[in-house]
Design a protein around this nucleic acid. Structure first.
Length: 498
RNA sequence: GCGCUUCUAGCUCAAUCGGCAGAGCAACUGACUCUUAAUCAGUGGGUUCCGGGUUCGAUUCCCGGGGAGCGCACCA
């Protein structure tokens, strides 16, 4: 990666184009004008003008004078008549025209000398159409609204991936899709909150800095508090705090916030990612499945007005109807050609895993089952599918199944081959929860870096009585991926870069 | 963390076998009162990611470092 030039260095060291723009800024100031004025007499947005005059005839004058601001995206200067295209933050464009007989020789020359591509410009003038029919502002006066010191990239090639991520603000200026994704993300968040509000859930915020990290199996980021002189962890999940809220009587509660996991990054994983978790007292994993489907379907409808969402590559993600449910053990048995149950001997699982060439890190019964399931079944789940009833030993925070021995009431929702959400009938029995934690501690002692810690304060909360509760976790970034077909780094405005 | 690929002008990309580092857009100078990525003529712009090595000569080959992309591993 190139070293970026810094403006503080001597002018001669600067790239030509920056030096020239700095000089133009000086000329503006020297002539008694401002390069970055504090306020402008704006009367309309570019969008307003376009909306008001959707279809004017060729070469008309409306008689209406407007003051608008926008960024210069194209310039077409002739000797005595100059054209430019101004763009709003949302990407709307309008043409401006400066003619010699309207603004005078001095103003026209200054304009040609001082205005560059990328500058923010304010113009005041009449709304007209040109002789070619283009909706335009015939400029009576113009002022610099904000001088750009760096040149805009070439607008006729796609920006490189790295440049887009490191200079997202430029990406947002020059690429419609970049702006769209930001809009979609915002609409999705609004839609999720609307669904929750209509269902009487309330939104809370729980700690991101935690003394004990819990609620998921993952490696945390560590940090340190000077004031408390103690090691702290960035949260890997809000679960244990949201459950405390349910103990306290906040029966329908959700949080949308960032989680941090100190693990690999790829097309579907980011070190910090937005997570939605929700808990419903007197619900269970069935009610949470229903809620999850509603959240996602409402989001698709609110964003696109359809449940058949067209993705980046032109494929359609069909989110309509009631989503399929399959049992983990049954779908695995079917796919691998032999019956696998929670009672299947671990030696059988081990043999099957070896035959398939799977290497498994911290082998337990449930770990084998999940790995085998991912190997045999996962990739085939393109349509939204709830995978039901997981092994006990890999789900330490979930209640045992009400009728099937050896499994817990947990589902994972798969869309387009990756995990989109998970739902539980939460484990609320403090005695069993303590036993499960003890198991995790043993795993940690045996070297599993993702095993959970025993959280005494959380257990104490459960000992005050937690009602039967359904819980769900849903990855926001991944929902955006499902709705757009983009990679996770394109759904996050400023993903982590080194 | 491991493997493969990649890094050249402000941006997007070329450069034969190791032989003067180029194009388009952008910039600069000039012309042009209806352009739409305006057009026409001309000009300038490079620590070829960084540091070493081989060589008469390195963008090119070798070693080390850094960034990025892809695959694997881990994970959601």
């Amino acid at each position: 990666m190139n070293q970026e030039p810094e403006l503080a260095t001597e002018e001669q060291d600067l790239p030509e184009q920056i030096a020239i723009r700095l000089a133009k800024r000086e000329r503006i100031l020297a002539s008694g004008h401002e390069a970055y004025p504090v306020s402008l007499a704006i009367t309309s947005t570019i969008e307003d003008v376009r909306l008001k005059y959707p279809e004017l005839e060729v070469d008309v004058a409306t008689g209406e004078t407007v003051g608008i601001a926008g960024r210069v995206m194209f310039q077409r200067n002739t000797g005595k008549l100059c054209f430019a295209t101004l763009q709003s933050g949302l990407g709307a464009r309008i043409q401006i025209m400066l003619s010699l007989d309207k603004v005078g020789e001095e103003n026209l020359e200054l304009y040609k000398e001082l205005v560059d591509l990328g500058d923010h410009l304010f113009v005041s003038g009449e709304v007209i159409t040109s002789k070619r029919g283009e909706l335009s502002i015939l400029v009576a006066s113009w002022t610099m609204a904000a001088k750009t010191l760096r040149p805009l990239p070439n607008l006729h090639n796609d920006l490189g991936e790295e440049y887009r991520v490191r200079h997202r603000y430029v990406d947002l200026i020059v690429r419609d899709r970049a702006r769209e994704v930001v809009q979609i993300r915002s609409k999705v968040m609004q839609s999720l909150r609307k669904t929750f509000t209509e269902d009487n859930f309330i939104e809370v915020e729980t700690p991101m800095l935690q003394t004990i990290h819990g609620g998921a199996s993952a490696r945390p980021f560590k940090t340190h508090s000077n004031a408390f002189d103690t090691e702290l962890f960035l949260r890997i999940a809000p679960e244990l705090f949201l459950k405390r809220a349910v103990v306290g009587g906040i029966d329908r509660v959700y949080e949308i916030n960032r989680n941090f996991r100190n693990e690999g990054a790829d097309r579907t994983h980011s070190p910090e990612f937005a997570m939605l978790e929700a808990y419903e007292a007197y619900g269970d994993y069935n009610t949470m499945a229903k809620l999850t489907q509603a959240l996602i379907q409402n989001a698709a409808m609110d964003c696109f007005g359809t449940l058949r969402v067209e993705l980046e590559d032109g494929e359609v993600n069909d989110l309509s109807g009631d989503w399929a449910r399959v049992s983990m053990f049954e779908s695995l048995s079917l796919a691998c050609g032999q019956e696998i149950t929670p009672q299947t001997d671990i030696a059988v699982l081990k043999k099957l895993a070896e035959k398939e060439g799977l290497e498994i890190d911290h082998p337990q019964h449930g770990k084998y089952v999940e790995e085998l399931w991912e190997h045999f079944v996962k990739g085939d789940l393109q349509q939204p599918t709830f995978v039901m009833d997981f092994p006990v030993d890999t789900s330490p925070l979930v209640r045992n199944h009400r009728s099937k021995p050896g499994v817990v009431e947990k589902w994972d929702l798969y869309i387009r081959g990756y995990e989109q959400a998970t739902g539980y009938s939460e484990l609320v029995d403090p005695v069993i929860q303590r036993e499960r934690f003890v198991e995790q501690v043993k795993l940690a002692a045996a070297g599993d870096p993702e095993a959970m810690k025993l959280d005494e304060e959380f257990l104490k909360a459960l000992e005050f009585g937690m009602p039967p509760t359904g819980g769900l976790g849903l990855g926001i970034d991944r929902l955006l991926m499902s709705l757009t077909g983009l990679g996770i780094r394109e759904t996050i405005m400023f993903p982590l870069v080194k």
